[in-house]
Structure formats: structure tokens, C-alpha cells
Write a protein that binds this DNA or RNA. Sequence first.
DNA 1: ATTCGGACTGGAACGTGTTTCCATTATGCA
DNA 2: TGCATAATGGAAACACGTTCCAGTCCGAAT
Lengths: 215, 215
Amino acid sequence: MTTANSLAHGSAQGSAQEAGQADLGSAAQRDRRRRILEATIALASKGGFDAVQMRAVAERADVALGTLYRYFPSKIHLLVSALAGQFEQTQAMVSRKPVPGDTAADRVIYVLKRATRGMQGDPQLTEALTRAFMFADSSAAHEIHVVGMQLTGMLNRAIKGADYVEGEEPSDAEIAVARVISDVWLSALVSWVTGRSTADEVADHIETAVRLLLR
Amino acid sequence: MTTANSLAHGSAQGSAQEAGQADLGSAAQRDRRRRILEATIALASKGGFDAVQMRAVAERADVALGTLYRYFPSKIHLLVSALAGQFEQTQAMVSRKPVPGDTAADRVIYVLKRATRGMQGDPQLTEALTRAFMFADSSAAHEIHVVGMQLTGMLNRAIKGADYVEGEEPSDAEIAVARVISDVWLSALVSWVTGRSTADEVADHIETAVRLLLR
DNA sequence: ATTCGGACTGGAACGTGTTTCCATTATGCA
DNA sequence: TGCATAATGGAAACACGTTCCAGTCCGAAT
């Protein structure tokens, strides 16, 4: 019996099947949650972080402001959850076929460039999600951890390439490399989002870093 | 407890231009600026990002709110400028003697661990400055760039060790490595600030990354 | 000394994230 | 079916970053 409000964040817990989202009790609740995240993405996509205003999200999702806050305890939680959702979606698409490339470096670069291009295709959305991720404080540690795991998981799959096996644990060295790469990727994303780097510079920087790390 | 305040390069006085920050004309103005940054550090040190409230800073610095905004156009600008000041101070202390260590990796690790320990000694201040840095948008691009340069400059000096020469430009490869390392350091700092990593994990992660990059 | 222009003060006011409260509506259980 | 409880809607209120304005102070030019 989930006590009262386990519906808050959409993450792990209940075990359950369904890889990602939380299992909300009723279909109506699942639907509200979906509408909220949908509205969040739509507003972020149109106007970035500042355009994701809680009143606007609530109105667009057709829920009361108080309800929105019951589902997501802050704007940051909301946006980071949305980021996790987007990631999951991307991962589902990517993980259908093995990553192309002959070396680990090639595969990682392929994956990252693809992801980067995807994000650059919707700059406002990327700005909103990235800034939320970076601004998050410890109260959103759990949501952030979920995203971090998605990211390093994706990288580990790319590093292993065809040798990748579902349950297999990566070695410590592999984990370390994946973490460093995701650090670089996030920093690069931030610098792009804040207008300090161009898309090309981001791509170059990531490629350089990966080749330094996977040699 | 870093309680900074000697960030104004003492000379600058008379008239001239002085490379660094805009040097405000009158002594009273320089003093206001100093008081503001001092108040910012004090409040941040006591209660972190949230405690740096613009009204509180203004009151503590004994200036009107409007004046505070004339000196620093937003809370983010204020905090990132404070960060630059702290950095400058650290650098001034560190740059007196050459960095110890036989290899580039050792020197870089030495410098980063020292800096990291310094920041961990005042967690609230670090949280405030780090989150401001990460949340900054393009309007603070200039302030951020200053900090980035300080950081990569510090790293380049550590990489070169005794061979370091003031005016000499680092090679592209060196710049790339320094940037990757600073990316890792910032990410590690963020994860520590948000409670996702312990201080030891941060130290380990940085050491691992540096050894991967400088081998 | 007077005047002029810009900087400073004090305070009100606005926007948006967040909290709070209560009436109303769903939901599940006996 | 009727009731107890939880969830939701609706709206006001609060907190803090930010903006604005009217009046005051100060130094420089006349």
C-alpha cells in the first residue's frame, strides 16, 4: 500500500515491469502525469527554462497548481523528470540496433554526436533541461542520479560495442572512463547552452576528449 | 573560512585602466563594491545560495537595493564575480611558488586536491558559487569566461611545472587536456555540492581522470 | 557660491516559484 | 448504497529576484 503520495517522483521504487515511469495507482493519475510532462516539454521547447512557468504548465496540462506540485515538488524536479523521460525515449530508439563503429572511441563519438545533434535540434528544450539539471540541488539528487545512470549506461554500451551483454557489470576502469566522458559531455552542453561555444566547438571538444580517453 | 576581501589589487588607485575588472572611478565606489562582495561571501558562507538574498546583501553592505543592482545586474552576476574574486585570491597564493610534483599528472592532482579541499572547507560557500556558475545564462558569459580562463590557466601552469613561462602559449593539445580536466573538476564539484558524491569520491574521480588524460 | 549631472537612497511594485486552505469530487471499502 | 479518506480544483497569500521612481547627496564645471 503506497502511503498517500508515493506518486511524487517518477522513478524506480515499486520494482515493476515498465522500465521507466513510476507506476501511479489509477489510470487517471498516470494520464495527469503524462499531460504534465507533455505540457512541460511543449513549453520548454517553445521558450526554454523561463517559459516553463508552473502556472502555465498547470493550465496547459489541465490540472490545478496544487496538483502539479503534488506530482512534482518543484520546477526543478519537474524538468529533471522530463529530462529523464526524454533520455529514456532516446535510449529506446538507439538501443534497437548495435552502435556502429569499429573501435570504442568511434562508437562513443557516434553516440554522443547523435545525441548532441538531437539536442541542438531543439535548443530551447535543451536549454531548459540542461539548466534544470545543473541547477538541481540535493533534494533532486535521486532524479539526477537516474539521469546519470542512463547516461553512463548508454556510454558503456557504446564502449563495449558488440560485446555488450545485458546483465554484465562493466569494470571499474570502464566506469571511470564513462564517467569522465559524461562529465565532458555535460560541460560541453552547458557551454553551448550558455552561448559560450558553438555546436562545432562542442563536437570537436567531445571528439578530442574521447580520443584522449579511449586510446 | 575564506573570508575574502583582498580581491582588489591594491594599486589600481590613481587613474589608469588596470587590466582586470572595470575599475570604478571613486574610492567610495571601489569601497562599495568591496563591501558588496564581502557581504556576498559572508552570507553565502553562512547559508549557501539561498541565503544570498539581494535585500540581505544590500543591507549588509550598507547600500540601497538599486545600487546593488547597478554594480551587479543580477544575483548570478554577483555570485560569479565573487567566485572570480575567490579564485584570484587562491591563485595569488598558489602562484608564489612552483607547483610540487615530478610529473604533470602529479602536479595537476596536487593543485586540484588543494583547491578541492579548500572548497570543501566551506561547503555552503562552495554550494552557492558552484550553483551560480552552473546556472548562469549567456548574460553572464563574460564573468564565466573569466573564471574559465583562471581555471585553465591554473591547470596549464601545473601541467608545465617548472617549464612554465609567463607569456608562452600552451599548445592545442595542452589546452584540450586542460579543458577536459576542468570539465571533470566542475562536474565533480557539482556532484559533491548536490550530495551525490562524498569528498573522497570526488578526490578519487579527479585523480583517475587526470591519470587517464596525462599519461 | 551656484548650478548641473550623475550616483545613491528608500521604498513601492511586479512577476513567478512555492505554500496553504478549504470546498468539491473520486475512490475504495464495509 | 453510503461513508471515510484521499485527491483535486480553485484561489489567495507569501517570498524573493528584479524593476522603477522620486527625492537627496556630492563633486565638477562655471
